[in-house]
Amino acid sequence: MDMGFKIIDAIKSNNTCEQICKLNKNGILEKIIPEVKSMKEVGKCKYHKVDCFTHTIYALEEFEKLMRENKFPSHLKDEIWEYLNKEAENNLKNIDLLKLGVFLHDIGKANAKTIDENGRVHFKGHEKFSGEIALNVGENLRLSQNSIKLLYNFTRYHMYLLTLYKKSNTSHDVMKEMFDTLKDDIIGVMLLGFADINATKKLIEPIENEEVLKTYVYYILTVYLYKYKKNVSF
């Protein structure tokens, strides 16, 4: 019996995190997405205190909290919600696919895992594996090609924000490359990146001010919407 509809119902609900946890508890989640099993077995490293599955649940919580609070800057709010509420396919919105993307963003870590000569665990390039797995998940769920592309973009490029944040590099060339690649999907990728980083940092640096991270997100989206998209030099 095809149980993919259970995932679709979960991402369309007002509490996707709770629904995903129920599917996991009932043993259904791994039947729909077999790679979930490996998510529970990897993930702990210098930067992550919990396994990959637990981290993605925390990230989903952060994302849904961000949506509920709805405290986006006034000059971005309408554009963000217009993007999130855009229909990706019949009865599925961008926000639904984005929640699935949040859950799948680190699913490629098992494939990317390496251990260096000092015994340290690394997951370099895991986003590429996550993107490929997301394509398969989308096909298995019988999503439209547009939805599958969205899911791929969210997972494949979710590291963009972290890279900018760590390097403090929001140069013209760096941002133009992002915008050229993602177009409007930069909105979803930045929101996913925020949820991802915040879920990680709260366990490592609980006193870290998340407003600093939001500043990066809102600055990037401002440049995209008001300069790049309007063909204004930046």
Rank of each mutant, 00 (worst) to 15 (best):
D2W: 00
M3Y: 11
M3Q: 15
F5H: 14
K6V: 03
I8R: 03
D9N: 14
K12N: 11
C17Y: 13
C17H: 12
N26T: 10
E30C: 10
F53Q: 05
F53I: 09
T56D: 11
I57D: 04
A59C: 10
F63L: 07
K65I: 03
M67A: 02
R68K: 15
N70M: 04
P73A: 06
S74T: 15
E79L: 13
V102T: 12
D106K: 01
I107H: 03
A110T: 01
T114D: 08
T114V: 06
R120Q: 10
R120V: 09
G125M: 04
H126S: 01
F129I: 08
I133A: 03
L135S: 05
N140Y: 03
Q145H: 13
I148P: 09
I148T: 13
T155H: 08
Y157S: 06
M159I: 09
L161N: 02
L164T: 12
S168C: 06
N169L: 01
T170K: 14
T170H: 07
S171V: 00
S171Q: 02
K176E: 14
L182P: 09
V189P: 00
M190Y: 08
L191K: 05
E205P: 09
I207Q: 13
E210Y: 08
L213T: 14
K214W: 13
Y218K: 01
K227H: 14
K227V: 07
Y228Q: 02
K229F: 02
K229Q: 07
K229H: 00
N231Y: 10
F234R: 15
